[in-house]
């Protein structure tokens, strides 16, 4: 494939004949993905790491960073493969397989790079990285971008914002759970149950952001 063809395909959004960057649309995507449709608290994507890695603040921040990073790369990869490979070859029904393979290999790659260049971060995140492969937020992002017919720029903005939204929810939850250590929780609700109830309260709070979209 020639470079100019690739550029043309990247610049044009999938259905309209191209067009410039729409600031209002970008803002809607950013606010929507961080607050209004927060991936964790409203769309129920990425619950497993949200529950598993929210016990301590530093690991929450690390996990959030890893998710933002992988999410952005995976979005780039899946968007290009979908629009430059699957659509022209009329193989769009293979998108689920293609996306999950892209994500799995990306995670593997990130793991190897981290292991080599940042052993400290690797030892902190090592066990969670494989979890990112089965983090539905990443695959969900790739699929959502196709369903919403986002162009490449919009998809990337969407990915970064959703990653930030995920991190926000994770960090907030970690902060609460650290304090919970010293709180007097009824024995039956200790551990996972109280975490769910707090998530419910957070989700309720985030509902208030719905007004932003109006």
């Amino acid at each position: 494939m020639s470079a100019s063809m690739l550029m043309a395909a990247v610049l044009a959004s999938p259905d309209t004949g191209g067009g410039g960057v729409n600031v209002a649309k970008m803002m809607a995507i950013i606010l929507g993905a961080i607050f209004i449709n927060n991936f964790v608290l409203s769309r129920f994507l990425g619950i497993c790491p949200f529950l598993g890695v929210s016990k301590q603040l530093d690991s929450a921040v690390g996990m959030g960073a890893a998710v933002i990073f992988v999410m952005t790369l995976a979005t780039l990869g899946s968007w290009l493969v979908y629009h430059l490979l699957l659509v022209p070859m009329e193989l769009t029904y293979l998108r689920t397989i293609a996306f999950i393979l892209i994500i799995a290999s990306l995670v593997q790659l990130v793991e190897m790079i981290l292991q080599k260049f940042s052993p400290a971060l690797y030892s902190a995140l090592g066990i969670y990285l494989p979890l990112i492969t089965t983090n539905c937020a990443i695959l969900g992002m790739a699929v959502l971008n196709i369903d919403e017919r986002y162009g490449l720029g919009e998809s990337l903005v969407h990915a970064v914002s959703a990653g930030i939204g995920f991190t926000l929810a994770l960090v907030l939850m970690a902060g609460i759970r650290e304090r919970l250590e010293t709180a007097d929780v009824p024995p039956a609700l200790r551990g996972l149950p109280i975490t769910f109830i707090i998530a419910g309260a957070m989700s309720l709070a985030f509902f208030g952001f719905a007004g932003l979209g109006g």
Partner: peptide
């Protein structure tokens, strides 16, 4: 709604 899912799940696990 989304908050209800979390809260009900919390109480089911507590039970």
């Amino acid at each position: 709604l989304a908050p209800g899912a979390f809260i009900i799940m919390g109480f089911i696990l507590g039970t």
